[in-house]
Amino acid sequence: MAFVENIRPSSETLLASNAPKRPANMGQIIRWLLLFLGGVVMVMPIAYMLSTSLKWPHEVYNVNLIPEEPTLENYAYVLEDGRFYGWFVNSLIIATLTTVSNILFDSLVGYTLCKFRFPGRYIIFIAILSTLMIPTEMLVIPWYLMSQQFGWLNSYWGIMFPGMMTAFGTFLMKQFFETVPDDFIEAARIDGLNELQIWWTVAMPLVKPALAALAIFVFLGNWTAFIWPLIVTNSPDMYTLPVGLSSFGDEADVAWELIMTGAAISTIPTLIVFLIFQRFIIRGVVMAGLKG
């Protein structure tokens, strides 16, 4: 029997001996190493945020990642502080409304610039794009003067109006609408839909991945916006979360553990938004109705 096994090795032996042995690839190792370093760089601020939120005030300036005496006291303090809820709700309202507004208006303008032929179309598109080159810091003063004149200071509208529609969003949507074949639009036209119905019923569902990406960008951008909300608001009850969190502490002492706790809590809605919309970011849906 042993002789037979010697000349006919078992399947396990064969599998083990024939398993493909990849030679050590130095390029691959370097790539993994770079990816690992990149991952560390990305994750460390989040890890320190969570770590600091679990520390006592006297331990905040210790660089150790794992708190010596972990505590949830900061979370209890922040959540019991009535101001936090107000800021959270302000941020939620502003980010949500701005996201909805961008999805509607950016896509409407992008669709119009993409699918309609009219004089000045190209000039309008370039004019919209050129606003991308103007830094926010330069726009803040005109925005403030406008808000002052229209009575929008310290209001939701004042915080939201500069971001209700963006050049980047318009550009993104226009580019995505380019991928929607004209046949869909023309078929809907023959089926009796008006142009607004075609945009909403036919074109919008076909660019869901772009809408999801835009929603994530706009929501995150407005959720974390700091400079403009800081300037346009002047009472704590109108603060957004980033502005409110920065007010923890006083000139003599910044309460980093509370700021980090608030920041940690404030990441929850952004994670939810990402989880909701990322499933829509699936390419290829547009092509499913076309030639096989």
């Binding site: 074949p181 046949d183 869909f184 023309e186 078929a187 036209r189 023959i190 089926d191 009796g192 839909l193 036919v202 569902p205 076909l206 869901k208 849906v285 547009v286 092509m287 499913a288 109705g289 076309l290 030639k291």
Partner: peptide, 20 residues
């Protein structure tokens, strides 16, 4: 007349059936 008012229907080369 608009396409919808011409009493015609069209079948396209790429089918143009809505994937969603």
């Amino acid at each position: 007349l608009e396409p919808k008012d011409r009493d015609i229907a069209m079948v396209f080369q790429n089918y143009a059936i809505y994937p969603h």
